[in-house]
């Protein structure tokens, strides 16, 4: 019988790479504590959306809740630079960055009484649009649905597109009817939402890779005996590596599924031009968040 039960809330469906990592984490913890620590995983946003979950981890009403910038990141504005467009070369690069910035994230998290157990990886986000995005010129005047945050708004504006905030459940109809011409997201999201049914084309602009963190409430974590704390940390590291090993395969699978559904996948040309256009935005955005953000951005850029 478990002596300690921890609740873990996430927003993704059971077959998403992040949820699979959550479950692997729970399994490893149960195994290595001989069932003394049980982690109950609640997916599909049943305990709340990312913002509510982040707040719940900070206030202690949920114990562990993986989330990104729309979740726990809201408490640490400077971390937003980690989601800037065209910041990472690829998944491997991102993993190297994670290792370098881990202490900075840990330090930031401490201020709100949470502790980061690890990183999850999502991306690269691309654009589903009615009109193919072959080159940067095709972004001109494109009414693109983006999340309602300055980073995404700035991203769209820097490319001369028109950012159009639309609530997530309405995106499909909004594109179908023409409130927006395009939307964006990581391959798994583009595939499961079926947004591609309305756009018929997906252009691989690969604009954003982003992290999700695995915050645990510090008070809960500190109350565990040292051996169990170590188990949690190590299990999270393994779950992190496991999730990273799934990302590329899952992306290919999602793209294949869309192709099978008759979607044209476009290899957008001149991504260096996109990156060049957004370089100034990266600096401006970091500057607007303050010195800590500028320093963090410099640190990320220094990783080869």
């Amino acid at each position: 019988q478990a002596e300690t039960t921890l609740t873990l809330g996430d927003i993704y469906a059971a077959d998403h790479s992040n949820t699979l990592a959550d479950k692997r984490f729970a399994e490893l913890v149960a195994e290595r504590t001989n069932g003394e620590v049980k982690i109950e995983v609640y997916g599909d946003a049943t305990l709340g959306n990312e913002r509510e979950l982040a707040e719940s981890v900070v206030s202690g009403s949920v114990d562990i809740a993986p989330s990104g910038m729309s979740g726990i990141g809201r408490f640490f504005p400077e971390l937003q630079v980690l989601e800037l467009p065209y910041l990472y070369k690829d998944l491997d690069h991102m993993q190297r960055v994670a290792a370098v910035i881990a202490p900075d994230v840990q330090e930031a998290f401490q201020a709100q009484g949470v502790r980061n157990l690890g990183f999850l990886y999502l991306g690269p986000r691309s654009i589903a649009s009615k009109k193919a995005i072959n080159t940067i010129e095709d972004m001109d005047g494109l009414r693109i649905r983006v999340p309602e945050s300055p980073l995404y708004i700035g991203f769209a504006k820097a490319l001369n597109a028109v950012p159009t905030p639309i609530p997530f459940p309405e995106v499909y109809s909004a594109i179908e009817t023409g409130v927006a011409d395009a939307t964006e997201g990581e391959p798994a999201t583009l595939s499961t939402t079926k947004w591609y049914e309305t756009t018929k084309s997906v252009s691989l602009t690969k604009h954003i890779w982003h992290f999700r963190f695995i915050p645990v409430n510090s008070a809960k974590f500190d109350a565990l005996p040292k051996e169990q704390q170590d188990v949690l940390v190590n299990a999270a590291a393994e779950a992190q590596a496991y999730q990273a090993s799934l990302v590329n395969d899952f992306n290919d699978k999602a793209l294949d599924e869309m192709k099978k559904a008759g979607v044209t996948i476009i290899e957008t040309q001149g991504l260096d031009k996109f990156a060049a256009r957004l370089a100034t935005f990266q600096d401006e955005f970091a500057a607007s968040l303050g010195d800590k953000a500028v320093a963090l951005l410099a640190k990320v850029r220094s990783v080869q």
Partner: peptide, 11 residues
């Protein structure tokens, strides 16, 4: 927990 009441009522 009580805090969850507030989080969810707001959400």
């Amino acid at each position: 927990q009580e805090r969850l009441l507030i989080t969810k009522t707001f959400g």
